[in-house]
Write a protein that binds this DNA or RNA. Structure first.
Length: 366
DNA sequence: CAGCTGCTAAACAATG
DNA sequence: TCATTGTTTAGCAGCT
């Protein structure tokens, strides 16, 4: 089923000609079976103490080519673009713990990453810290992060509240108006879609909310911009409690990765097989129905279809060739590395370290 | 200044 | 009945 934005509720009081991030269309294009996605510079700070010494060493080991050295860390192949942004270690606003967990940011795990116990503990640890100032993130971003951080990529309103309170204790003591704002955002923003719960498993009232795949890149962009602004104005805006230094040691792996237009290659590579299997599992576990009173309500199957049609819509930073029998990662200079090789490399600890040089070789000249 | 975005408050209906 | 959820409207501030 084609995702039709025109089928979205048209009752929004906002003009339909919005030009903001939540009304923009996905910016990827497809030509000749090739998915071309926009590239923009992003840097993510690295948590030094979140890496094992060996991993950290490999991460920081400089490539002879001083570019796109690729690392395999905790199930991810990551192309760290030299060590240019190690200075950003001090930036505690990184959201890489989210993409580590759920592909939120453009670092794609080759395999679904089991939530790290480290992360689990971080949540509770962080949530017990003292109240902080208001997070710089918009409600849309908060909702986005909450949903993306959920195992099924869908949450009821109540759980969204809980996630926000858990990660941004500011809202623990804030007046209840913010909950209204959350609901307001969910209803108003085209970025979020309501899904009816599986009646057989329904506990509690209300629907589940998910991120509309079409708007995911835009949401990511907003997060990226907020992150960027936040990084550059860390002296102006108090960092969210979650990222404060006191709780930094409980964060999961954070990697220093800079993504630039010229270094699209080799970034991290999303395994479509993984994606599709995730989606199928996702779909199998969801039985969603159209509600009689809300014809716009989508089914999870529809959402999954959209994601399958554009499995990389959430990566936004890689190119992938689809062939009948092979999928190739597009590396610099039209070099290709098939995913099977990547997977083998991933499974082999030693080969993982070698993967960096392999990709470096494949991306030679950069 | 206009337009847009985001936040907040409020009213109201539907639902469990 | 009540609390929660979802929708809608309105106004305001900040930014471009």
């Amino acid at each position: 089923m084609e995702f039709d934005t025109h089928s979205l509720p048209s009752s929004s009081p906002y003009p339909t000609s919005q030009t903001g991030p939540f009304s923009s269309s996905p910016q990827h294009t497809s030509t000749n079976g090739r998915l071309s996605l926009p590239l923009s510079p992003i840097s993510f700070p690295l948590s030094p103490n979140s890496l094992s010494p060996a991993t950290a060493e490999s991460t920081y080991s400089s490539s002879p080519l001083d570019c796109s050295s690729t690392q395999v860390i905790e199930g991810q192949i990551i192309s760290s673009v030299s060590s240019t942004n190690i200075s950003d270690q001090d930036d505690l606003t990184c959201l890489s713990w989210l993409h580590q967990r759920c592909n939120l940011l453009p670092l794609q795990p080759l395999h679904k990453v089991t939530p790290l116990p480290q992360f689990e503990s971080s949540v509770s640890t962080c949530s017990t810290s003292s109240a902080s100032s208001k997070p710089p993130y918009s409600f849309s971003s908060l909702i986005f992060m909450a949903i993306e951080d959920s195992p099924g990529k869908k949450l009821p309103v109540k759980d969204i509240y809980e996630w926000i309170v858990k990660h941004f204790p500011y809202y623990k003591t804030a007046t209840g108006g913010w909950r209204n704002s959350v609901r307001h955002n969910l209803s108003l923003s085209k970025s979020f879609r309501r899904i009816q719960r599986d009646k057989s498993q329904s506990v509690g009232k209300g629907s589940l909310w998910c991120v509309c795949p079409e708007y995911r890149p835009a949401l990511l962009e907003v997060l990226r911009k907020t992150h960027s602004y936040h990084s550059n104005n860390s002296n102006l805006i108090k960092k969210p409690e979650l990222f404060e230094e006191s709780s930094y040691d409980c964060l999961p792996i954070c990697d220093s990765v800079e993504i630039t237009d010229s270094l699209s290659h080799g970034l991290l590579l999303s395994n479509p097989q993984t994606l599709s299997s995730e989606n199928s599992t996702f779909a199998e576990n969801q039985t969603c129905h159209l509600t009689p009173d809300h014809e716009e309500l989508v089914t999870m199957e529809e959402v999954c279809e959209e994601m399958e049609k554009d499995p990389l819509s959430d990566s936004g930073y890689i190119e992938l060739h689809y062939y009948h029998t092979h999928e190739y990662l597009v590396l610099p200079g039209d070099h290709q590395l098939d995913l099977e090789t990547v997977e083998i490399l991933q499974l082999d600890a030693e080969a993982q370290e070698a993967a960096g040089s392999l990709l470096d070789l494949a991306g030679g000249g950069y």
